[in-house]
Design a protein around this nucleic acid. Structure first.
Lengths: 255, 255
DNA sequence: GGTACGGCCTGACGTTAGGTGAGAGTCAAG
DNA sequence: CTTGACTCTCACCTAACGTCAGGCCGTACC
């Protein structure tokens, strides 16, 4: 079979996917063949091979197919830029697997009576990538629309803007940490909380309820809590209380 | 809530799984709580925490839940031994991810006009081969040493030898299928089983226990079973029984 | 030309492992 | 008592294919 393109079996073999997968991707419009032979056989050219590779990278990172299709369809989709993002995520995963191996070794040592395995040690390395988990939780707390709107806002940012937002967030956290010895209702603290709210609005626009919920999440979610406690011990609860006070008189913020 | 055990939320948080997952595992009998509170709350103790860890290791390696349940239920299941098998598989995965990073870098270079990406290079690191799944299972059943020895033998084969071995295996299966109406202990059947054992020794040298375990695997593993049932209906169980009979007087085989 | 076999097509049912939502009981603090 | 977080069971739903079936296609061989 040599008809100016690869048949499904040839491509399936080359890419390590099933023929059924290729049929499925064609059916949903994710990967259409370049052409069809007179008998109706699918024929894939080089461009489809590269596209399938992009799809497989996103799939490897557990993106849903519908989302892959959407991203590939964006007018400003840049394959090289996407790949650079994937690299970071793959490196994170390798790091996770190393942590899992560490957990494994500690568990073997535990079974051999050589190590006392704590509950916290037991599950290190299992949790999926943090951003995906946080995204799921954000959906659970605030609904899907907010998360999508948040992603749209983030996606529209330039790299420079994104880095400025990152610096702004770190500055807010540092300023809050410096005010830890004050009452959460203190005017200086509340001023920083207002900056925090403005920072959040790079991502989404909270009302009083959802902002209060966010504060609670900072204190109660183990990953958020660990993050803030790492900035300064006591910061997670302090920020939660400061946000609660702020929400007692939630200013209408124009923007 | 401090009632001599963890509630679903506490365990879910600790282990990084969902409450729904814990409900599901309870419903299918995979992970039952130690106790129930007066109100019907599930309460998990330390033993369940360790068991959940074992489950999560198997899950990480993509074992189906039903299979995880079966393996955990085997009388001779040894957690430390299982973990040692997992370690090898996780190391393989890290290796695969490094290959994927290599593919990624080559692709970025391709997009930047600095590398000519071949079709073979395009998909390196993506799909673990099907043999990897079977290798994983073999490790869980028989330990790592046998699998490594098997790979050494296969690696030393020429292509011609490999094809001859393939034909020999098919012939053994066909002969077994032709004897399906006989008793598994019949002399002719046992003669074919001896040929089957000789065939297996192209890959590894079983003793009576491991050969019996292989027979069991043929009948119980869904992929092996499907393969043999495809050759002839009833063949998987027949072969398992024939191997059991053969192992009652396991000949010392010189080679 | 007929046969055999591997390859292709479309159509359609089935599967696994939870996700999601609902209604109602439980627990602890104010 | 109220409130809010937590729990229970029940039940519908889903993504991404896997599997099977019936029939056409292409090539080699008799």
């Amino acid at each position: 079979m040599d008809l100016k393109g690869l048949t499904v079996k040839e491509l399936a073999r080359l890419a390590g996917v099933s023929v059924r997968t290729l049929h499925h991707y064609d059916a949903i419009g994710l990967l259409r063949p370049d052409a069809r032979s007179g008998a109706g056989y699918r024929l894939y050219g080089r461009g489809q091979l590269l596209r399938l590779q992009q799809i497989l990278f996103f799939r490897e990172l557990e993106f849903p197919l519908a989302e892959i299709a959407r991203m590939l369809a964006e007018p400003d989709f840049d394959p090289a830029r996407a790949l650079r993002g994937h690299r970071k995520t793959l490196e994170d995963r390798i790091g996770r697997l190393h942590r899992l191996l560490d957990t494994l070794d500690k568990t073997v040592a535990h079974y051999e009576g050589e190590h006392m395995l704590t509950e916290e040690e037991m599950y290190r390395g299992f949790a999926p990538e943090k951003i995906t988990r946080m995204k799921r939780e954000a959906r659970e707390r605030w609904g899907n629309e907010l998360v999508e709107a948040s992603e749209q806002r983030v996606r529209g940012m330039t790299r420079e803007k994104w880095e400025a937002v990152g610096r702004e967030g770190a500055a807010v956290n540092a300023d809050l940490a410096a005010l830890l010895d004050r009452d959460p209702g203190d005017a200086a603290v509340q001023s920083v909380v207002a900056r925090h709210r403005a920072w959040i609005e790079h991502f989404w626009k909270p009302d009083a309820d959802s902002y209060r919920g966010l504060g609670r999440g900072y204190a109660e979610d183990p990953e958020f809590r660990a993050f803030y406690e790492n900035v300064a011990p006591g910061l997670a609860d302090f920020l939660r209380r400061a946000i609660d006070r702020y929400c007692e008189n939630f200013p209408a913020k124009e923007n």
